[in-house]
């Protein structure tokens, strides 16, 4: 399965809906999307990963890169994920301490910390 990407605006946040597999082949597409959003002035991003079937370290690297970019503009990058197999990868790599991970898009959009 390939990667699917779509974006929508909710208040002052931009929600990126990601579906499919984020791996060494597809991660560059996600990177392009995040770079494009930041270049266009969207600095508060919510990446919804509920429809992601697979995520590897290349995908993690892209998310970390996205976080660095938005932070350079005092922005934020929040994740939405309830899938145990995906959350496990964030735990193994210690990235649960780096990303705010929410259980729903509504919660992520409302978060202000």
């Amino acid at each position: 399965m390939d990667l699917s990407l779509s974006t929508r605006t909710v208040g002052d946040r931009t929600v990126v809906d990601v579906g499919g597999e984020i791996d060494v082949y597809t991660a560059p597409k996600l990177r392009e999307q995040l770079v494009e959003l930041v270049n266009d002035g969207s600095y508060h991003l919510v990446v919804d990963m509920e429809r992601v079937d697979f995520l590897d370290s290349t995908g993690l690297g892209v998310l970390v890169g996205g976080l660095k970019r938005v932070r350079a503009h005092e922005g934020s990058l929040r994740l939405v994920c309830n899938q145990e197999r995906i959350l496990k990868i964030f735990r193994i790599t210690g990235l649960t301490k780096v990303f705010p991970i929410h259980t729903s898009v509504d919660e992520a959009v409302a978060a202000t910390d």
Partner: peptide
């Protein structure tokens, strides 16, 4: 950056 990614890959493998 490539090497950082590489290290993260190995970290995932050894964690799994």
């Amino acid at each position: 950056a490539d090497e950082a990614e590489d290290e993260m890959g190995l970290a995932v493998i050894s964690g799994l």
